[in-house]
């Protein structure tokens, strides 16, 4: 049985957690077969003109430190299990942003033999940013969309290991060796 005061305390803690999450999204960037275009635009958002650090966004190197996975490019068969591995290495709660037309649908690469095409088929995506590549402003806009949805109480999506992708078997769960 919980008393009212405990409930109240929990509410405050949850609010604080949510506030912290919104104000400090640390991102990790993974390229799963992109042409570089989106990657350099993501890098450009860190630089003085756009400077996402003022929104609390920091690009981290290790998946263990990150909250948001920014994935670009159509998912190639080679990069597939790396992508899932990076996603699994991230601690909960985690969110995924798909950047660029390729990550959304395959773009021009839709139909190539070694491309799965849609990031959504592999891992659950929270925000889609179309564009080839999106302008850095558009990427910032997408991140703001994610933060807005967090404000409204969005829960991270559940990850299901994809079974319907041919030529794919998940390696045994990584023990942290990157």
């Amino acid at each position: 049985m919980r008393t009212d005061s405990e409930n109240y305390y929990n509410q405050i803690v949850n609010k604080l957690k949510n506030w912290a999450r919104i104000n400090s999204p640390w991102a990790i960037h993974f390229n799963s077969g992109s042409c570089n275009g989106c990657d350099i635009e993501i890098l450009a958002t860190l630089t003085p003109r756009y400077d996402v650090e003022r929104l609390g966004i920091k690009l981290q190197g290790s998946p263990r430190h990150a909250d948001v996975l920014i994935a670009t490019g159509p998912v190639t068969l080679q990069a597939l299990d790396r992508l899932i591995r990076v996603y699994e290495q991230m601690p909960d709660p985690k969110y995924v942003i798909a950047v660029g037309s390729c990550a959304l649908s395959g773009g021009v690469f839709d139909g190539c033999y070694s491309v799965i095409g849609d990031l959504n088929k592999v891992i659950p995506v929270d925000v889609y940013i179309p564009g080839c590549p999106p302008r850095p402003e558009a990427i910032i806009f997408g991140v703001v969309q994610l933060l807005d949805s967090l404000k409204k109480g969005k829960k991270p999506a559940k990850f299901v290991v994809p079974n319907d992708i041919p030529d794919f078997k998940l390696e045994e769960k990584s023990n942290g060796n990157n």
Binding site: G33, T76, Q78, R82, V108, F109, G111, C112, S114
Partner: peptide, 23 residues
């Protein structure tokens, strides 16, 4: 290498010249 292998050369053969240019 090969993580970004997308099969572009093969895909070129199934599209017309204009589409190939953008690909």
């Amino acid at each position: 290498l090969g993580f970004v292998h997308r099969g572009i050369e093969k895909a070129c053969e199934t599209r017309n010249y204009t589409q190939d240019m953008y690909l």
